[in-house]
Nucleic acid binder design. Structure first.
Length: 197
DNA sequence: CCCTGATTCGC
DNA sequence: GCGAATCAGG
């Protein structure tokens, strides 16, 4: 892949938006994060500040006698890295998915909005469920911000309570969940044939 | 361990 | 110009 205008444009856009080099690399495809970072530097936009008036605390410009006026304000990260994370979405899969955020957890009935349509603990192989309740003990119990593309995004508990967290175990290749949760999330469309809407 | 960006340097 | 390897953190 080469740096076509389009790709460079997208790179600039994403970098400006605060996307990480690896995210940009994945989006572009055909390049590694190193390539992205390298390009970013060559483009001279290593600093992601919109109009960063960030005054470098360098009263002493440079005793550099040479003819290199390259100031290159690097290593200056105020804190403009909000990390929007456009997809920590614990969203239940649209198709063939069992949203049931409360697999084998005790049925808690919070004051706020209860979990609406809860196909709940039915139609799912007992084995898969057993597996889930088992691994939930080993769950990393991550918070939303701690999720990455390699951590299981299965939500446990109720978001409205303190007792809420994400599995966080290593995900299965590709999938958004760990093996156990993939088991209950992606049912091979089994004992639930009819359902004429 | 996972991840970040920064730099170097052979191509 | 390019980007893998490497470095330096978190």
């Amino acid at each position: 892949m080469s740096w076509t205008d389009e790709r460079v444009e997208l790179l600039k856009k994403m970098w400006t938006e605060g996307q990480s080099a690896s995210q940009i690399a994945k989006e572009l495809g055909g390049v590694t994060r190193n390539a992205v970072i390298g390009k970013v530097h060559r483009l001279g936009l290593s600093n992601r500040a919109g109009g960063a008036p960030v005054a470098e605390a360098k009263p002493a410009p440079k005793p550099e006698p040479a003819a290199k006026p390259a100031p290159a304000a690097k290593a200056a990260r105020p804190a403009p890295a909000p990390q929007p994370e456009p997809e920590p979405a614990p969203a239940p899969e649209p198709v063939a998915a069992a949203p049931a955020p409360t697999p084998a957890r005790k049925q808690i009935i919070p004051a706020g909005q209860p979990l609406p349509p809860q196909p709940s603990t039915n139609e799912i192989s007992p084995e898969a469920l057993a597996k889930v309740s088992e691994i939930e003990k080993k769950a990393k119990r991550l918070t939303l911000m701690e999720l990455t593309e390699r951590t299981c995004k299965w939500p446990v508990g109720d978001p409205a309570t303190e007792d809420f967290w994400f599995c966080g175990l290593p995900v299965q290749q590709g999938k958004p969940y760990c093996e156990a949760h993939v088991g209950v999330a992606f049912q091979p469309m089994s004992s639930r044939r009819d359902r004429r809407r």
